[in-house]
Amino acid sequence: MNVFAVAMLGILVTMLLALVRAFLGPTVYDRVLAANMFGTKTVLLIAVSGFLTGRPEWLDLALIYALMNFTGMIALLRFSKFENLAHDEQGK
């Protein structure tokens, strides 16, 4: 049992906690935060599993996921605030 397996266990437990928050809600903000948290945990899962299986190149993959998670979250938050992606006015 090496250090990466322990880190993986921690990531899976954190994923479970984020999942519980996404299930329980109760507000929109809780669920958006849980989804963002889960995206971050996916980045860590991929990075750590790369080291766990002896392929540290997977760190690059994890970086791409981090970028995608960030862009997706911006789009999501913009959409929940302005109800479109192109203009700044609300509900137009």
Partner: peptide, 16 residues
């Protein structure tokens, strides 16, 4: 939101 999380887990599975 939960569909988004589901996709992220699938992506993790496929990467593994």
């Amino acid at each position: 939101m939960l569909f988004g999380i589901f996709s992220l887990i699938s992506a993790g599975m496929l990467t593994l």
